[in-house]
Amino acid sequence: MSTLDTTSGSVPQTARLTSGLGPKSSSRAIKDRAATVVMWLAFLIAMVPLVWILATVVMKGGSLLLHADWWTHSQQGITNREEGGGAAHAIQGTLIQAAMTALIAVPIGVLTAVYLVEYGGGRFKRVVSFMVDILTGVPSIVAALFVYAVWITTLGFDRMAFAVCLALVLLMVPVVVRSTEEMLKLVPNELREASYALGVPKWKTITKVVLPTAFSGIVTGVLLGLARVMGETAPLLILAPYFRSISTNLFDGLMGTLPTMINAGRDNMAIEANSERVWASACTLIVLILVLNLLGRLISRFNKLDR
């Protein structure tokens, strides 16, 4: 280092690097400390609402989740003022609708992403990609009104839970497309070439090499999409109003779900039996999404070999 100082005589003093072996300069130490503090603060601030929400929901509604009735009974015949009953109708409604939505949205989303990454080129690819971007920005109420206009006004069907699924599909597809696309792009091209070089056709390369390699990432993306649609309320309110009893038919009228159960109870929060149920529904929704995420982790771990 010292040789550098003596030989670089023509370089102006201000342009030189300070020689490297001394203690850390105090200004850098201060900047380091400041940056650390700012990052920790940002992290803590970001954690505040999360912890707050979780704590509130669990404290106000968590106890109901410990009753078996909550998971096995509906609200049939129970008024706002009465205690008792459960959220079984809303839980199964939410799960059925989420499953149906995923059933439609996952194939569309994954195949679209496969097209965009593996096959697409030129103008059509750009158009599809742009459309997905637009779809990402569509508010849920717009998706709901669109389905209302098509399904009910134009095609003449009744309001039903299946229409909700259609609206939710519109919201879920872009999430799945974008996340799957990113995951497919992460699969090294070398693996595709290795497969082609073995005389494996392109479609088999995609189904047996590319998709399995990206599997855990795709699962994560699907779960993110599901988490988003499971909490949606607008399409549910417009397309399939709240129902207090068990109803498993997607194609017949009303179906209770957790978001609509929360919404139905929110007017009477002064009544303790009711408000506790509302908080418990919120807590259940969070728990459901948490369980789904854990399940997804488990699935994607099974897919890997390093057990």
Binding site: E190, E193, A197, K304, L305
Partner: peptide, 14 residues
Amino acid sequence: GMVFQRPNPFPTMS
């Protein structure tokens, strides 16, 4: 057949 510059075993396979 072909062998590439960087070893590229399929990561999901035994």
